[in-house]
């Protein structure tokens, strides 16, 4: 018997229609979402985090290398995957994609003039461990211009796609880097009305977890929807 998830708290989410981000104007639904009770389908999900990954999938500095390491500021991006009840989510599959250090994506549709890096594809994956911990090694992506209101600039960011234990927990988001002055100027960031919610998308510099003389570290925790708790579960055993 599975338990339902808390309803998604939309106050913490971006608005679908946010005219500052032009692409939403024709792509945001006009009608309100229709609320449904979950069934066993939404309360379960594909076990993607239980299948083996490639040994270098989490290491973007090396996983597309041909002549040497990828160019750029070497960083770890690490943290925990938790649910709303603060329980670790093990076996979560995290897929990431990002621009290179110059702000260019290795993608047929990116025409930005900054150069490609022949040793960097910008694609990575990892699975959280029993305590929900995950780790990537990569380079810090560069900011880049995009056609929105004239030339807007994206803050440096990494896209993350997360599968927890259930389809209800599905999440795709972007992480930003502490101290980036482009964050408050970004129309995509500003689709989120709640400033505290934006702050939770900012990875924190964590010098204690650096690799000395090698790699800086940024910490980013991910929170997925949690299951409703029964009173029984909250009661101390034996009472």
């Amino acid at each position: 018997m599975t338990t339902a998830f808390y309803r998604r708290d939309r106050s913490q989410q971006p608005l679908p229609l946010s005219p500052g981000y032009k692409s939403t104007v024709l792509r945001a639904p006009v009608r309100p979402l229709h609320a449904l009770e979950q069934t066993s389908l939404e309360q379960s999900g594909p076990a993607l985090g239980h299948t083996p990954l490639g040994a270098l999938d989490h290491d973007l500095i090396r996983n597309a290398a041909t002549t040497g390491d990828a160019l750029g500021e070497r960083i770890y991006v690490f943290g925990r995957v938790l649910d709303e009840n603060a329980r670790p989510v093990p076996n979560a599959l995290i897929e990431i994609w990002q621009a290179n250090a110059a702000g260019r994506y290795a993608h047929v549709r990116d025409g930005y003039l900054a150069p490609l890096d022949p040793n960097f594809s910008g694609c990575g994956r990892c699975v959280s461990d029993a305590e929900g911990r995950y780790l990537f090694r990569t380079i810090k992506p560069g900011p880049y211009p995009w056609p929105n209101n004239g030339s807007d600039w994206r803050p440096a960011h990494i896209h993350l796609s997360v599968f927890g234990e259930a389809f209800s927990q599905r999440l795709i988001t972007q992480l930003y880097f502490e101290g980036d002055p482009l964050i408050p100027l970004c129309p995509i960031v500003n689709t989120i009305p709640d400033k505290d919610a934006v702050d939770r998308l900012v990875a924190r510099l964590d010098l204690r977890n650096q690799e000395p003389f090698d790699c800086l570290a940024y910490r980013f925790d991910i929170v997925l929807r949690g299951r409703r708790q029964t009173h029984f579960e909250n009661r101390t055993e034996g009472l």
Binding site: P14, S161, T173
Partner: peptide, 18 residues
């Protein structure tokens, strides 16, 4: 309760990672 991490658009380069 902790608050769910906010979503952001998958963007036009979603293919690289997925």
């Amino acid at each position: 309760r902790l608050k769910e991490t906010p979503s952001q658009t998958a963007g036009p380069y979603v293919h690289i990672g997925t």
